[in-house]
Structure formats: structure tokens, C-alpha cells
Amino acid sequence: MAPDNIRLYPLGDAAIVLEFDGRISPATHRAIQAVSTYLGQHPFPGLREYVPAFTTLTVYYDPWVLSENGQQPYERVSEILRRLLPAAQASEATVAAKKVEIPVCYGGAFGPDLAFVAQHTGLSIDEVVAQHSAPDYLVHMIGFAPGFPYLGGMDAQLATPRKAQPRPLVSAGSVGIAGLQTGIYSLPTPGGWQLIGRTPLRIFNPEWKAPSLLQAGQHLRFVPISEAEYQSRQQHES
């Protein structure tokens, strides 16, 4: 994506948003990851944090550090980002070459909405499981809750609307579908996604050096397992 096509606008008085495209796509994701990777390798004075999303990258900065020589902090950050964008996008964003396998026990108590998804889509339960576990998914972003991955690549035939009444508590590790998206609940939280299974893996732990098992730019595949395998893996994770 050409740097001139990236729109910049302020978010409050200490952040700037880079809008890459209005469409969620692998190309947009790669462009965002390239700039994120470059910022991580070449931070500018006053940079606090950068947060990638589906079609945007939000850069947080320290206005005090960037208010030198009477120049407005936002104008200075805009200038810095415009200057680095060509070099950033010329670089390759290689966040993670390794594919992560996520074991999932589908249905039963772990996936109470699997039958509803099958009914809604006109597929059998086995077909839903087969189609959901077939693709390589791209982690577009982490959001909603710490460690929660928003994934791209789900078969459109599996699209199912959110629940009309969200659950007050969804167990960590639950795998759900909402519209054209699928994701994994990283923590026990309220949620309205249709739950089709659960992984025994812990995907978020604030005590880990890297608290989130998954990162934007990684690829993953769901691997169906039995309830006995789930129990065995969960004991290992505990």
C-alpha cells in the first residue's frame, strides 16, 4: 500500500491513527505489520506504544517529549511517521513463521452452541467441525480482552449471528463464532459468541514473559481432540 494512501488523524492529544484501508484483508494486515515491526526496531523519541487493529495502527506518544521548538506534538509525530512509512513498507514483516496448533474439544459441555451453528448453516455437526478445523487462520489482531485473537480465514458458510442474550460468563479457552469471525476467549468474561468448543491450552497468562500465546501476524490451525485428550492436556497445563 502506497504511503500516500494511508490516512493519519489524531486520537485525543497523545495518539495518532494510521488508517490503511477500509477493508479487512491479508494485504492490509501485511502493511500494518510491516509498519509495526519497523516501529519496534526504530522507535522515535516519545513513542509510548503502538496498537495494530484490523485496518488501523494507533501510535501513542508523549506530547511533552515531542513539543520541542514550538512545534505541535501531533504535527511532529505526523511528520516523523510520513518520513518513515516508505522505509517501513519496503521491509518485510516476518512476525512469526511458525504455525500454532490449537487443540479443541468440539461440542458437548465445551461447545453448547455447536448444534445451533449446524442448524443455522444447514450443515451436520461433523461438517461444522471439519470446516472450522480445516483452514489456516491469520491472527489479525489481539483485542476485546488481553490475549483474545481475532482470526481471519473462516469459511463463510459457517457464519452465524451472535447470541441474542450474551452469557454473563464464558470460560477461558472457549472457541466461538460471531458472524464471519471466530476467536478464542482468553479469560473468563461475559460474551455473546456462539460457543462450539474449548481448548485446554492457556492462551493468556500475565506472569509469562510474553503474556499472550498468540500475536498479530501468526497463523494457527484448530485440531479436534476428544474429551479424554482435553482432560489430559488440561492437567498438563495446570
Rank of each mutant, 00 (worst) to 15 (best):
D62N: 13
P211G: 00
Q157I: 15
R162P: 06
V95F: 15
V175Y: 00
L123T: 05
P26W: 03
G143M: 02
L11G: 03
A178R: 04
V117F: 01
N5Q: 15
Q181Y: 06
P190R: 04
P224Y: 07
Q218E: 14
V139S: 06
A15R: 03
V128F: 07
Q157L: 14
L151Q: 09
M1W: 06
R30F: 12
A164K: 11
F204E: 00
E229W: 03
P146S: 06
L39G: 05
I102H: 03
P26F: 03
W193C: 08
R76Q: 15
C105A: 10
L180N: 15
S186A: 12
P206R: 11
K99E: 15
A109I: 14
L114W: 01
L158C: 00
A93C: 04
R30A: 15
K98E: 14
P63I: 08
L123G: 04
L18A: 15
P188K: 09
A164D: 13
P224N: 01
V95S: 14
D62W: 06
G22I: 06
R83F: 09
G22E: 11
I32H: 12
K98N: 08
P86G: 07
Q218G: 05
R82E: 12
E229V: 03
A130D: 13
T58W: 05
H236K: 13
P224S: 05
P188C: 08
F20V: 04
V223C: 09
Q131L: 14
E227W: 05
G70E: 09
P86Y: 04
L213F: 11
W193Q: 08
A109H: 14
H236M: 13
G108C: 10
R198H: 06
D113M: 10
E79D: 14
R221Y: 02
S124I: 09
L39Y: 11
Q131A: 09
Q33F: 04
Y61S: 10
L57Q: 09
H140P: 00
D4R: 07
Y137G: 01
E75N: 11
Q157F: 08
S133K: 02
P10R: 00
M141A: 13
D126N: 09
D13Q: 10
H42N: 15
G179M: 00
A109C: 11
P149W: 00
T28E: 11
F204Q: 05
S238H: 15
V128N: 07
P10M: 00
E79G: 13
G122H: 07
P73A: 10
S25M: 07
A34I: 04
G108E: 13
F116A: 15
A178V: 03
K209N: 14
F148C: 04
P3C: 08
L84V: 14
